[in-house]
C-alpha cells in the first residue's frame, strides 16, 4: 500500500460453509484506475465486490479506503452511518440488473436526482438541470426525463443507472457485470460510454466481468480469480497477451475470435 492508494484489501477470506468464496485475496486500487476482476461463474468475483464495498463482511482480512482528505478508513470497522454516507457520495454501485438499483415507479429525473437530494440538495431547478445534463451525457433524450423507467429499453435502463450513480461524481465505482444481459450492439455502445465517462471524470472502478473482451477494452489492470483465489494479476494487456497461470491461459485461449 502506497501513500496514494485509494482502496486496499489484505488477506480477504470468506467461505460459505465448506465452500471457499475468497482465500487470502489482496487488492490495490489507485485513483482513476480501472481494475477488472475476471473468472468463471462461482469463482468469487461478486463476493469480492461485495466485501470490497462493505456490503458483506469477510471472515478475515481488512479493506482500507482513503477519503479525499487522505485519511484511511477500515471499511468493515466503520460505523453504519459513515458507510451509508460513503455509499451515497464518494462511492457508486452499478448492478448487472438495473432494476435492483433504480426505482421503477419514479421518473428518470427523480432517479437521477435521488442521490443529490440524499446529499442535501434542496433546489428543484438545480436538481432538474443536473438530471437533464446527466441524461444528455448518457445519451437519453431530454424529453424522456419525466417518463417512468419501465418504459425504457434494457440498454437505456443500464445507462440511466449509470447516470444515477455518477451524478454525485463518485471517486470509486463498483460495477457488477454492467454489460451482462444486453445484446452485442448495445453492449458496445455502453462500453464506449463507460470508458469515456470514467476517463473524463477520472473515476476509479472495480469491474467484475466474465467477458475477457470487456476487461481488455476498459481495464488498466486485471485480476484473474479461480475458486476464491486471485491466481494472476497485472496490466491487462500483459496478462491477456502473455498469460502465466494455466487457468489464465485456458481462459484466454477459450475466447472465440470472430
Amino acid at each position: 500500500m502506497t501513500d496514494d492508494t485509494l482502496l486496499s484489501a489484505r488477506g480477504l477470506t470468506l467461505s460459505f460453509g465448506s465452500i471457499p468464496a475468497l482465500v487470502e485475496v489482496d487488492v490495490d486500487l489507485w485513483p482513476g484506475e480501472m481494475l477488472a476482476v475476471v473468472g468463471e461463474s462461482g469463482s468469487g468475483k461478486t463476493t469480492l465486490l461485495n466485501v470490497l464495498s462493505g456490503r458483506a463482511a469477510p471472515h478475515a482480512g481488512a479493506v482500507w479506503y482513503r477519503d479525499p482528505s487522505g485519511r484511511l478508513h477500515d471499511v468493515h470497522a466503520m460505523p453504519a452511518p459513515a458507510l451509508r454516507t460513503l455509499h451515497r457520495s464518494d462511492w457508486g454501485f452499478v448492478h448487472q440488473d438495473p432494476k435492483q438499483n433504480l426505482r421503477m415507479n419514479v421518473t428518470a429525473g427523480g432517479n437521477v436526482g435521488e442521490r443529490l437530494m440524499a446529499q442535501g440538495a434542496r433546489h428543484y431547478g438545480d436538481i432538474r438541470n443536473q438530471a437533464l445534463e446527466w441524461l444528455r451525457q448518457v445519451e437519453i433524450d431530454a424529453d424522456r426525463i419525466d417518463d417512468l423507467p419501465r418504459t425504457f429499453s434494457g440498454g437505456m435502463l443500464q445507462r440511466l443507472q449509470i447516470a444515477r450513480t455518477l451524478v454525485t461524481h463518485p471517486r470509486l465505482v463498483f460495477m457488477d457485470e454492467p454489460t451482462g444481459g444486453l445484446d452485442v450492439s448495445v453492449q458496445a455502445r455502453l462500453l464506449d460510454l463507460i470508458r469515456t465517462l470514467v476517463a473524463r471524470l477520472s473515476i476509479a472502478a472495480v469491474l467484475v466481468t466474465h467477458d475477457i473482451a470487456v476487461a481488455r477494452l476498459l481495464a488498466h489492470r486485471i485480476a484473474v480469480m479461480q475458486r476464491g483465489r486471485v491466481v494472476e494479476t497485472g496490466l491487462t494487456d500483459q496478462v491477456l497477451d502473455d498469460p502465466q497461470h494455466p487457468y489464465t491461459q485456458l481462459l484466454v485461449s477459450s475466447v472465440l475470435h470472430a
Binding site: A80, P81, R84, R88, R103, V106, G110, G113, E114, R115, M117, A118, Q119, R122
Partner: peptide, 10 residues
C-alpha cells in the same frame, strides 16, 4: 436511524 431522508424529497 441514519437520517437518510432523500427518498421523501424524491
Amino acid at each position: 436511524a441514519l437520517a437518510d431522508y432523500g427518498l421523501m424529497h424524491v
